[in-house]
Design a protein around this nucleic acid. Structure first.
Length: 421
RNA sequence: GGGGAGGUGCCAGAGAGGUCGAAUGGGGCCGCCUGCUAAGCGGUUAUAGCCUAAUCCGCUAUCGAGGGUUCGAAUCCCUCCCUCUCCGCCA
């Protein structure tokens, strides 16, 4: 959400963002509704002033005066009763429109239509050269009895999977590894709930536009979140933090769920795109300072890079262009890990800066050194998400004998094992 | 799932239809005072909106959330959320 005053005063900037982010929103309609809300509020305020002074007179009024006061009060009440529902409706439509207003991308973000126009900015590691016929991750898993896709599909539908034996241990070891790293860096570890109420999804910006990507539990009016970002952002909703406790750095692990509606036949095979996964997410609340936010963006991006480097996975970083970045973001980098079987890089991490866009939605504020109340800035980045991450891990580390090499950094988390299988 | 108690400002806690944006105590901040400190004294201490040159003043809203009753609601009624507690069920 953007500041309404900012929208009023900078409609051209907002129009530009709507255009380059390819958001379907009529700003003129929003501005007209905004004026209507202001008009109604003024009318109601004037009536309330009169209502208050009128009923204040009642206390000291003589019995003869009372009928007049009551009469006038009733008239005011009737007028208010006519106006208040109109204000409520108009405010609600304004809110709905406001939820669609995108954040303004930073000036240096590449303008583009979709992911083909993202810009590679960094590359690390060598793509492995195999002196044998490398397998893809599904073949590797099946050869070792490390997963079941077929049976479990009958149980839980397409895009489901079941890891088995050493893969279960590896998955846990990877998460443990990521969490250990982040704890060392001063992050507060959380197990975040996967279920949350609607307001939490509105807070991060996943609602209203992404509602069809989210599982809904009607009996309890709860939704399953696709990232710990949702519950963690909502955690401090409505609070006024003090500047001294910022930045708050959370590393939250949660089972995550995505319906993948509309992704049709894309990536139906294997572990790339599944409905349920486990993710360690970095989530930062910081002060209202673009420079500080930039530094933290680099920090959490760096944390993910370190994890990949320790796990010896070749990757690249792309700067995401305007058309491919979410509405709330001012800046976004994806980290893509090398997938040998596809001979391409695939997104495994996503690092975003959102300015105060999420904080305004969740009413998440802090008191600065001057005592002024400000909205926080928020940022997030994946630390590690499985099972997708198993794809580059298994494929890059496969050996001629079919085993999987365990990078030295991960061996302690795997009971010292140097290879799997 | 069933029963009971409760949600008030930074915290504790009064308030039971008008004089309540809200007593009192604690904390914080500013000042005064006493060799320092402690104690003491005075003042101040919410958020959003409207108005405004203004973070002054004034006005409006907010006592878990949303509705309702009333000339007037923190106070009465309804719905929901949350906390505590007892019983039942349960990994």
């Amino acid at each position: 959400m953007l500041d309404l005053r900012f929208i009023r005063e900078n409609p051209d900037k907002v129009r530009w963002a709507i255009q380059v982010k390819r958001v379907g929103l009529d700003l003129d309609e929003l501005l007209a509704v905004d004026q209507e809300v202001l008009k109604l509020k003024r009318q109601i305020q004037t009536l309330n002033e009169e209502k208050n002074s009128n009923s204040k007179r009642m206390g000291k009024a003589t019995p003869e005066e009372r009928p007049q006061i009551i009469q006038r009060g009733k008239e005011i009440g009737d007028e208010l009763k006519a106006l208040e529902p109109r204000l409520r409706e108009t405010e609600e439509s304004l809110r709905q429109l406001l939820l669609l207003v995108p954040n303004i991308p930073d000036a240096d973000v590449p303008v583009g239509l979709d992911d083909t126009e993202n810009v590679e900015v960094y590359r690390w590691g060598n793509q492995p050269i195999f002196d044998f016929a490398p397998l893809d991750h599904v073949q590797i898993l099946e050869n070792h009895g490390w997963a079941d896709f077929k049976r479990v599909a009958d149980v839980a539908g397409s895009r489901s999977y079941m890891l088995k034996n050493e893969m279960v241990i590896l998955e846990h070891a990877l998460h443990r590894f990521a969490m250990d790293r982040l704890m060392e860096k001063g992050f507060t570890l959380l197990t975040a709930p996967s279920m949350a109420r609607e307001f939490a999804f509105e807070g991060t910006g996943h609602f209203p536009t992404g509602k069809d990507q989210v599982y809904y539990l009607p009996a309890d009016d709860l939704y399953l979140s696709g990232t710990a970002e949702v519950p963690v952002n909502a955690l401090h909703s409505g609070e006024i933090l003090s500047e001294s406790e910022l930045p708050i750095k959370y590393a939250a692990i949660s089972p995550s769920f995505r319906r993948e509606a509309g992704s049709g036949g894309r990536d139906v095979r294997g572990l790339i795109r599944v409905h349920q996964f486990t993710k360690v997410e970095q989530y930062i609340l910081t002060k209202n300072d673009p420079e500080e936010s930039k530094r933290l963006h680099e920090t959490i991006l760096g944390n993910a890079k370190e994890i990949l480097e320790a796990l010896e996975i070749p990757y690249r970083v792309v700067e995401v262009c305007t058309g491919d970045m979410g509405a709330g973001k001012t800046k976004m980098h994806d980290i893509e890990s090398w997938v040998p079987s596809e001979q391409k890089y695939r997104e495994t991490h996503s690092c975003s800066s959102l300015g105060d866009w999420q904080a305004r939605r969740t009413n998440l504020r802090y008191r600065d050194a001057d005592g002024k109340v400000q909205f926080c800035y928020t940022l997030n980045n994946t630390a590690l998400a499985t099972p997708r991450f198993l794809v580059p891990f298994l494929e890059n580390h496969q050996q001629a004998d079919g085993s999987i090499r365990v990078p030295a950094a991960l061996q302690p988390s795997l009971g010292g094992k140097e290879k799997l299988g």
